[in-house]
């Protein structure tokens, strides 16, 4: 199996505080990898190192290598803008722009000039909405504000917006944590569907969710990677005692 992302000896600091310790991990292409662990364990921080979203925090500093398709994204000549187009992200709280549904999706296509003409743009917006399983619900109100959608729809809109710029990797930071069970189920079905085309990394605090959607799971604690295994094995017969304690709910 080919690695899409290959992380080795990654350390990460907020000022003097070390948030990630010596992480080494391979993320295979077109699979879903879930990061689990108690809150504050560094799983979200780790996720945000994969598209250098942490760059926005002035005191943050990373060392080690993160290779995506064999290229080190922390190399000095890295084009962060291009990187983030390739590595899309969906956030914990849905964050549509204060624009219409259509314009939300069109935004990334527009800034990257990824369309020939108006019809092409409409076609691409439509495809993104289809892929995010949102088309049927919004096709009649594309020009209304995105804020008029329900929480679950807004989150799928954000997924569609990320898909529209044709990324290769999608990072999801607890994408369903603010949603009700039905909306959550839709997101989960979508994730399973999307992995046919994309490499997906998902942070979740919900272990059942990790078990349902992911192929591989990484368990973090206190900024360290405790165990990384096939999800199946992780939830039935983990290698580490600590993992078992966490999964069986002895702490967390």
């Amino acid at each position: 199996m080919e690695s899409k992302i290959s992380i080795s000896n990654l350390n990460f600091y907020y000022g003097k505080e070390q948030a990630l310790h010596d992480i080494t991990l391979e993320i295979p292409e077109r699979q879903v990898v879930a990061f689990i662990g108690p809150s504050g364990c560094g799983k979200s921080t780790f996720l945000r190192t994969l598209n250098r979203m942490n760059d926005t925090i002035p005191i943050a500093k990373a060392d080690g290598t993160v290779l995506i398709d064999g290229k080190d994204i922390y190399a000095p000549n890295t084009d962060v803008v291009a990187l983030r187009r390739k590595v899309g992200m969906v956030f914990q709280k849905s964050n549509p722009f204060p624009k219409s549904i259509f314009e939300n999706i069109a935004y990334g296509i527009r800034i990257n000039r990824m369309y020939e003409n108006k019809a092409d743009l409409e076609q691409k917006v439509g495809k993104a909405l289809h892929d995010a399983a949102l088309w049927d619900e919004v096709k009649d109100r594309l020009n209304t504000s995105a804020f008029g959608l329900s929480g679950g729809q807004q989150q799928r809109l954000c997924i569609a917006r990320a898909l529209a710029v044709q990324p290769e990797v999608i990072l999801m930071d607890e994408p369903a944590s603010a949603l009700d069970p039905i909306a959550t189920q839709k997101i989960e079905e979508l994730i399973v569907e999307l992995k046919k085309q994309y490499t997906i990394v998902i942070v979740t605090h919900n272990m059942q969710q990790a078990a349902r959607v992911s192929d591989r799971t990484a368990f973090f604690m206190l900024g360290k990677l405790v165990e990384y295994n096939a999800t199946q094995k992780m939830f039935t017969n983990p290698d580490e005692r600590l993992t078992e304690d966490y999964i069986t709910g002895r702490f967390g």
Partner: peptide, 11 residues
């Protein structure tokens, strides 16, 4: 063409 667009955006 794409690269020049990209460069222009950054400029």
């Amino acid at each position: 063409n794409k690269e020049s667009l990209h460069r222009r955006r950054k400029i």
